[in-house]
Amino acid sequence: MAELKGWKELPIGGVIDKPATAKEYQTGTWRVIRPVHQPENCIHCMMCWLYCPDQAIEIEVVDGKPKMKGYNYYYCKGCGLCANVCPKTNDKLPEEKRAIVMKPETEFQD
């Protein structure tokens, strides 16, 4: 989370005085359910990448083709859209067969 500034340090009028400051906003702090990528079940169709509202799907291009690598949890809000649109994920499949598993964030806390 970006350090919060005091009133004397801020531009007046609620003005944002430079572009693209949304990049500094850690929307990942909103997340209560975490999508977890299981690459062994993934067909790299890029549906999750297409639908993610936060561009939090990380990909790499291998031999000219995109590969799903996982999540940028700094921005991922845990909305679950990726799991919802994933053709290799649904409620009827056992968890170990899914490409994306939604897990409570509490499981990841120290």
């Binding site: 919060l4 500034k5 009133w7 801020l10 609620g14 003005v15 572009p19």
Partner: peptide, 29 residues
């Protein structure tokens, strides 16, 4: 003028959402 929108070399945003993290500071200003 201050923060004029027509100064396209220095783009600014007017009227953004200002929640519990900054609204109070702007009122103090």
């Amino acid at each position: 003028v201050k923060y004029p929108l027509l100064d396209v070399d220095n783009p600014v945003t007017y009227g953004p959402l200002d929640l519990y993290d900054y609204y109070f500071e702007h009122k103090r200003q």
